[in-house]
C-alpha cells in the first residue's frame, strides 16, 4: 500500500487543506518496498479537501509504503523507528525501515512545529486505511 497525505494551498485563493490518498499494490509481502514514484499502486480511496487536487502548491507531505493489510499500529511503530534515526537531519526525510518506506517533507514555516504537522498529516492518512 501507498498511503500519502499532503497539505496543499491553492495559489489563487490561498485555501489550504490536507488531501490524502490510499493505494494498494495487491501484495501482502515484498523483499523491498517499491518506490511510490515508479509504482504507486492502484488508487483505492481518497479524502480530498482541496478540489481539484491539481496545480496546488504542496506545503507538507508524508508518504507511507507498506505491504497491503498492514495495521496502522505496525506502520506507525516502524515510522517511530524511522523518526529516531532521521530527525536529526534537515528535512525532507526519506528512508526504508524493513518492509516499509517513509518520506516526510514540509516547508520551513511548518517545520517550526513539525510534530503537530506530522500528527495532522498522519491522522488524515490513517483514516483512509480499511478498518
Amino acid at each position: 500500500m501507498y498511503l500519502t497525505a499532503q497539505k496543499v494551498v491553492r495559489p489563487r485563493t490561498q485555501e489550504t487543506g490536507i488531501n490524502a490518498f490510499y493505494h494498494e499494490h495487491g501484495r501482502r509481502s515484498w523483499e523491498a518496498p517499491p518506490s511510490p514514484d515508479r509504482d504507486p499502486g492502484k488508487l483505492v480511496a481518497d479524502r480530498v479537501r482541496i478540489d481539484p487536487p491539481v496545480g496546488n502548491r504542496v506545503r507538507s507531505y508524508v508518504d507511507l509504503v507498506a505491504p497491503d493489510g498492514t495495521p496502522a499500529k505496525e506502520i506507525l511503530a516502524a515510522f517511530q523507528k524511522f523518526l529516531a534515526h532521521t530527525k536529526q537531519k534537515p528535512l525532507p526525510w526519506s528512508g526504508t525501515e524493513g518492509s516499509y518506506l517513509f518520506r516526510l517533507g514540509m516547508d520551513a514555516a511548518l517545520a517550526k512545529t513539525w510534530r503537530a504537522e506530522l500528527a495532522a498529516l498522519l491522522v488524515d492518512a490513517i483514516k483512509l486505511l480499511p478498518s
Binding site: V54, R57, V58, R59, L91, G105, A108, W114
Partner: peptide, 15 residues
Amino acid sequence: SELAAPEDLAFIDVE
C-alpha cells in the same frame, strides 16, 4: 528547537 527545512518544497500536486 527548529528543524532545518527548505523555504519551499517546490512541489505541486499533479494528476
